[in-house]
């Protein structure tokens, strides 16, 4: 018995850096640990984070949209090497629990978009641009940009993330051609927008509560 206790003490002393890597597997791989892992990049309140790349806001996001996107990452229909690695180890049950958790979060928007064209952004969001056949964002994403089912919430999304998404339809999402992707509608929706108009929309959304 004393010998065993000594051996245990040595093990404990030599593994403090990743103490629970081989023990307490349940806590390591459980829901809380996975949630903390998501929030490391997406923010402690799911508010999003701007690193070299933009990690989008997940707070308040529609669960169905999150689940769709994680499946798309995993099946490489949405091409993103980092999120592929993240998504393909998630079980359906974990995925559903994570989506439900993020839906319930409601931190204030982090803002950050340039402010000079907010009025233009608001106009496009609410009314679209009839002269270039751009529909109002609010028609599908809702008057408060909260989204619905597979249509994502846009309110409070990070400016650089929205801006990139707006100019990137068809290059990242809907790949592989084996299944329909709901984002396909965004290609004709946005393709008449100028860079300045995209920036205005993304900036407006970044401040929306």
């Amino acid at each position: 018995m004393p010998i065993m206790a000594g051996a245990l003490a040595v093990v404990a002393a030599s593994s403090s850096l990743a103490a629970d890597r081989d023990e307490g597997g349940d806590s390591k791989h459980g829901f809380q640990a996975k949630l903390e892992y998501c929030k490391t990049c997406h923010g402690l309140s799911g508010e999003g984070y701007r690193g070299y790349f933009s990690m989008p806001r997940l707070a308040g996001q529609q669960p169905k949209y999150i689940e769709n996107q994680l499946r798309a990452f995993s099946e490489r229909r949405r091409v993103n090497p980092v999120m592929f690695n993240v998504a393909h180890v998630l079980s359906p049950a974990t995925l559903a629990a994570l989506s439900a958790h993020f839906k319930a979060l409601n931190p204030p928007p982090s803002g950050g978009g340039p402010k000079e064209h907010l009025a233009l952004g608001k106009t496009i969001f609410e009314e679209g641009l009839p002269e270039s056949n751009v529909p109002a964002c609010s028609a599908c994403h809702g008057p408060e940009a909260k989204g619905h089912e597979e249509i994502p919430r846009l309110a409070g999304q990070l400016y650089p993330y929205t801006l990139q998404a707006l100019s990137y339809w068809g290059k990242e999402r809907g790949q592989g051609g084996t299944r329909d992707d709901t984002s396909a509608i965004m290609v004709p929706t946005t393709h008449n927008l100028t860079q300045e108009q995209m920036s205005a929309i993304a900036a407006y959304l970044s401040y929306m509560k």
């Binding site: 390591k28 996975k34 892992y37 990049c41 690193g51 790349f53 990690m55 090497p81 980092v82 690695n85």
Partner: peptide
């Protein structure tokens, strides 16, 4: 790529 099974995030997303 991080270590998804160990909940270690990838460095590339923030550090480039």
């Amino acid at each position: 790529e991080g270590l998804p099974d160990e909940n270690v995030v990838s460095c590339i997303v923030c550090h480039g």
